[in-house]
Every structure is written in structure tokens, then in C-alpha cells.
Amino acid sequence: MSRIAYVNGRLVPHRNARIHIEDRGNQFADAVYEVWGVRDGALMDFEGHLTRLARSLGELHIRPPMSDAALSAVVSRMVEINHIRNGLIYLQISRGQARRDHVFPPANTRPGIMITAKALNAQKAEARAQKGIAVITRPDIRWGRRDIKSVSLLPNVLAKQAAAEAGAGECWLVDPDGFVTEASSSNAWIVTKDDVLVTRAASQDILNGITRRTLFALAENAGLKTEERAFTVAEAQSAREAFVTSASAFVTPVVEIDGKPVGNGHPGSFSLQLRATYVATAKERARKPVRRQSVWLVAPRGERLVN
């Protein structure tokens, strides 16, 4: 079956999905996004992503296009109609379509919304985690509000491309003081020789990942020590283990940083156990779409139901 996208209240074939040339997400990156992982047909960490979406919209003063209940229905429907067993749901909300002007458009401008679904090979992802990834480091040149999940991702794109060209799986970003902030599309962690899980404290310097938050709760339940603090590249290279977390990577071990092996150069027991525990817990708590007899969607406020 062809992929189906949701664009401003309508279901359309993915290949035909379009937005207006003056959508502010297109011209100003005046938009936010969220990504849900899907495992065994269920949305992982659903409420956490919904809460962070609301925060990002609030920080940028973008009006929500619909209620949480309606949005939940649409996202769940996208999993079902695209037959996503394992994959990702991507959602983007912009300030809307208006004549190009740096100043916000009128308050009654309707926000733009689009949602796409993508299937992923779960076995391939698991094999990648079992092997571990290499990372490189680059200076962090992003804007100062990284806590907002905005679509202003050009520095992230450049960092990820640098990693790809170096044959690495991810790029860790480093602040002017030499401390790791996070990766191009994930949060960065180390495990110290004293078995303490360390990651950068949540602030405007990083995106407070939903998988990151869940991992703190799992670590606490397991009696593991955690610290939210900055760490240097050198400390990471000499750590017992390192890994990254995100909605798509879950918990993925890092086995090499800038050409130097981490630990024995293989995924560590902490990282692999945390991954297994996260996946099991997230699947248990995941939100499964409710199947319905007819095709339906809830469109943005002011529009009729789409059948």
C-alpha cells in the first residue's frame, strides 16, 4: 500500500503531499516537530512527546491546530492506515501560511500541520545496537534555544553529514568550554568506571529527550546511580561505556569516539541491558491505535471531519 500523509486536515498520498510556498515553516523554520517511535504497532512514550510538543508550541507562541484528543486520534490513525508495525511517526506544526514578513502574521492565521509515517527494519536497528556505533565530535554551532524542538536543524544536518562522511553513526556536539552537549539527533551519555550514568543536565543547551527522561526513571527503579552534569570528550573516551538515546535509536551503544575505543571497543553490558529494559518497558506502556470500521480523521479546528 502507498504511504499516506496528513496535511492540513486531509489524507493524501505521500507522493502528492504539498504545503504552500509561503508556509512559515518553509520560509522561516517557524515550526516545531515531534517524532514517535512505533514498536509492534504501538506508539512509544506517547504522552511524553505530546507534552513536549505543547511546550515547544508555547515557547514559540504557536497556536495548537487542534485539541490533544483530536491530535491523538490523528496520530494513532496514521499508524493504522500506513500499517506501521515498526517505524516512526513524524509531526510538524508551523505558524501557518502568510505573506512573507518576519513579524508574526495575524493571530487568526491557521497553523499548518503535517504528519507522515515511515516503516523501519527493527531487526536491522537491533543488529546496529548490538554492534555499537562510532561517533565523531564537532563544535556546537546551534542557536541558543535547543530545548525547543524546532525545525531549525541545519547545524544538525551538517553534523550528521560529517558523521556519515567519516563512516560514523552519530556526531556529538561540543560547547566552547569543551563539554559535550548532545548529538546531532540524540542525547549523549557515558557510564563512569564507578557505574554512574552521566548525561548533560536539562537546560536551554539541549533537547530534553523523552527517551532520556524515561531512562532516568528506569535507572532509579533499578537502583542505578545517575548524574546530570557536563562531561568532556576526554572523559567520554576514558569512560567504561557510552551510548545515545532517542525515539528512533532507543538506547544505542557508542564504541568509538573520534577514533578512540570506548572501554574494550564493544557494546557494554550496561548499555545493552538498558536498551532491553527500555524497549520492554516502553512496549508495555505503549499506546496502541484503536481500530475502527471506517476511515476517519479529525481535521484542524474549523474544518469538517474527513471521511
Results as ranks from 00 to 15, higher is better:
residue 50 L to K: 01
residue 132 G to T: 07
residue 150 S to P: 04
residue 54 A to I: 00
residue 165 E to A: 14
residue 87 G to I: 09
residue 15 R to C: 13
residue 186 S to W: 07
residue 226 T to G: 11
residue 226 T to V: 14
residue 305 L to H: 06
residue 257 I to R: 00
residue 44 M to H: 06
residue 250 F to E: 14
residue 227 E to F: 05
residue 209 G to D: 05
residue 253 P to Q: 03
residue 44 M to S: 15
residue 280 A to I: 06
residue 172 W to P: 01
residue 166 A to M: 06
residue 144 G to S: 14
residue 242 A to E: 00
residue 174 V to A: 09
residue 132 G to D: 07
residue 280 A to S: 12
residue 270 F to D: 08
residue 84 I to S: 01
residue 186 S to Y: 09
residue 166 A to E: 02
residue 266 H to A: 11
residue 153 L to F: 00
residue 27 Q to N: 13
residue 241 E to L: 10
residue 27 Q to I: 12
residue 98 A to Q: 04
residue 280 A to Q: 12
residue 146 R to F: 15
residue 112 G to W: 07
residue 269 S to F: 12
residue 109 T to V: 12
residue 42 A to N: 11
residue 120 L to Y: 09
residue 87 G to T: 01
residue 251 V to E: 02
residue 92 Q to Y: 13
residue 280 A to N: 06
residue 72 S to I: 09
residue 211 T to Q: 11
residue 159 A to E: 00
residue 104 F to Y: 13
residue 40 D to G: 04
residue 190 I to G: 01
residue 10 R to I: 07
residue 32 V to Y: 02
residue 166 A to I: 09
residue 115 I to Y: 05
residue 214 T to F: 10
residue 263 G to Q: 02
residue 76 S to A: 14
residue 79 V to G: 10
residue 69 A to P: 03
residue 10 R to W: 01
residue 48 G to E: 05
residue 190 I to S: 06
residue 133 I to L: 13
residue 38 V to A: 07
residue 193 K to E: 14
residue 220 E to F: 12
residue 82 N to P: 01
residue 115 I to P: 02
residue 35 V to C: 05
residue 206 I to Y: 00
